Computed example of a mutant assay.
Amino acid sequence: MAIVAKLDAGSQPDPESPNRRTTWLTTINENGSPHATAVGAVWLEGAYWFQTGAGTRKGRNVARDPRCCVAVSIRDADVVIEGEAARVTEPAVVARVAKAWADGGWPAVPDETGSGITAPFNAPSQGPPPWNVYRVDPRSATVVLATDPGGLTRFQF
């Protein structure tokens, strides 16, 4: 399989690739198994933020059990943040997060109620807008530095 061969070869993402900064969200399925999926998360105000439709698996999972983790590769490090997802509905907060997504290139805006977001496009799996906004406050982090791949650091927030 070509993917396994690339993993075996230690393949790195192309620095110009659109998915070089994919952020992964892992939630807990009803049977206790993990559910990992790519998300358009944004780091803002000391937390990760993501959005999803109420009917998505990640939306159902965090409604039932908010424990989750967010994983991302940043310059010179791989980072996994553990925390709990909390739905945010305060219009001023939703507007700040929508602006952060818009500033990053995804034209999100608050919906007419101010408690969710909408945009001209999203992944089809998210369902129709409006989408719920969630904040993941970091509880702990695991970091592997590219300059010291043998070193692993875990810390609490």
Rank of each mutant, 00 (worst) to 15 (best):
Ala9Pro: 03
Met1Val: 04
Pro130Lys: 03
Thr23Gln: 10
Ser125Asn: 03
Ala41Thr: 01
Ala108Cys: 06
Phe157Ile: 07
Glu112Val: 05
Trp131Glu: 01
Val79Ile: 14
Pro138Arg: 09
Arg87Trp: 07
Asn31Ser: 14
Asp8Leu: 12
Thr22Val: 11
Gly32Phe: 08
Ala85His: 08
Trp43Asn: 07
Phe157Val: 10
Thr89Trp: 03
Thr113Asn: 09
Trp49His: 02
Ile117Pro: 03
Leu25Ala: 05
Arg64Ala: 15
Pro15Asn: 06
Thr37Gly: 03
Arg75Ala: 14
Ala98Ser: 11
Phe50Asn: 00
Gly55Ser: 10
Pro91Glu: 04
Ala95Asp: 15
Leu152Met: 14
Asp78Arg: 03
Gly10Lys: 02
Asp111Ser: 03
Arg64Ile: 07
Asp103Phe: 08
Asp148Trp: 02
Gly46Lys: 10
Asp137Cys: 08
Glu30Pro: 01
Arg64Tyr: 05
Val136Leu: 11
Arg135Leu: 02
Ser140Ile: 10
Val136Gly: 06
Ala95Thr: 12
Pro91Cys: 12
Thr27Ser: 15
Val143Ala: 09
Asn61Val: 04
Leu25Val: 01
Leu7Ala: 09
Pro107His: 12
Arg20His: 10
Thr52Cys: 09
Pro120Ile: 05
Pro128His: 02
Asn132His: 14
Pro91Asn: 07
Val136Thr: 05
Ala77Asp: 03
Trp101Asp: 00
Trp131His: 13
Trp131Val: 00
Asn29Pro: 12
Arg135Gln: 14
Arg75Met: 07
Gly151Glu: 10
Ala92Asp: 14
Thr26Asn: 09
Val97Leu: 01
Ile81Thr: 15
Gly127Arg: 01
Asn31Glu: 15
Val70Pro: 10
Gly32Asn: 13
Lys6Tyr: 07
Ser125Tyr: 11
Asp14Trp: 01
Val88Gly: 06
Thr113Tyr: 05
Gln51Lys: 01
Ala36Glu: 11
Thr26His: 11
Arg87Pro: 10
Asn122Cys: 06
Ala2Thr: 04
Gly40Ser: 08
Pro110Ser: 04
Arg67Gln: 09
Arg96Ser: 14
Gly151Ala: 14
Lys58Asp: 00
Gln51Ser: 04
Pro15Gln: 08
Val144Thr: 15
Ala38Tyr: 02
Glu90Asp: 15
Thr56Ile: 03
Val88Leu: 13
Gly59Glu: 02
Gly46Leu: 06
Ser73Lys: 08
Pro110Trp: 06
Pro34His: 12
Val143Arg: 15
Arg154Ile: 13
Trp106Lys: 08
Ala63Pro: 02
Phe121Val: 02
Gly151Tyr: 04
Arg96Asp: 13
Glu90Asn: 13
Leu44Glu: 11
Val144Asn: 13
Arg135Phe: 03
Arg20Tyr: 02
Pro66Tyr: 02
Gln126Ala: 07
Ala102Glu: 05
Gln126Met: 10
Ala123His: 08
Ala100Val: 05
Ala71Val: 12
Lys58His: 04
Asp14Gln: 04
Ala123Trp: 07
Thr37Phe: 00
Thr26Ile: 11
Ala77Arg: 15
Pro66Phe: 04
Cys68Thr: 00
Gly127Asp: 06
Trp24Lys: 12
Pro124Ala: 09
Gly151Asn: 09
Ser115Trp: 01
Ala86Leu: 09
Gln12Thr: 11
Val42Lys: 11
Pro129Arg: 01
Pro149Trp: 06
Ser11Asn: 00
Leu7Gln: 03
Trp101Val: 01
Arg135Asn: 03
Ser11Tyr: 00
Asn19Trp: 14
Val94Ala: 06
Ala123Lys: 04
Glu30Tyr: 02
Val72Glu: 12
Gln156Leu: 13
Asp78Pro: 00
